[in-house]
């Protein structure tokens, strides 16, 4: 698994397409199903998938959220070990006012941290340039 992170509008998807030679077979986290994640080659807007996941079944508390994050990350790694994941890096700003936003941000962080721990490669994209951090 490869994890590509960075801020919004940084050219992360373009970087991933070029670096891993994946022109098609991308799932869009804003609309894709859980099933699509099992056999797509890459997923972008992954943080938006997590937003939908969090909205569908809000975590009851932080331990519950951490459990779910870890379970989801492990399932993804097992089902689709070659997946390329492109996600916005959240959490570099003010704590959101809305509870749902706070939980989503936290869940994205926890999921990506679990994925990064097991990923073959983690790349952070800044100004269109990828820096391999793992």
């Amino acid at each position: 698994m490869k994890l590509i992170i960075g801020g919004a509008c940084q050219g992360k998807l373009a970087y991933a397409k070029e670096t891993y030679h994946i022109t098609d077979g991308w799932a869009d986290g804003r609309s894709c199903s859980r099933e699509e994640l099992k056999d797509c080659r890459g997923v972008h807007h992954f943080h938006e998938y997590i937003r939908r996941m969090a909205a569908g079944e809000p975590a009851e508390n932080l331990p519950d959220l951490e459990r779910r994050a870890s379970k989801f990350a492990c399932a993804l790694l097992r089902e689709n070990p070659e997946l390329v994941i492109v996600s916005n890096e959240l959490g570099y700003g003010i704590v959101p006012v809305e509870k749902a936003d706070r939980l989503w941000r936290e869940l994205t962080g926890r999921v990506c941290t679990s994925l990064a721990a097991h990923a073959d490669e983690v790349v952070r994209v800044v100004c269109g340039i990828g820096i391999r951090i793992k």
């Binding site: 919004a8 959490g91 959101p96 994205t108 269109g128």
Partner: peptide
Amino acid sequence: TNEVFSDGLAYDEETMRYIACLGAVNCALA
């Protein structure tokens, strides 16, 4: 330049347009 891309919040359309424009400028500069 400035990193304004990583708080994860969705802003109004105009602000998103600004964020996208600055992101594109930054990529082209880099």
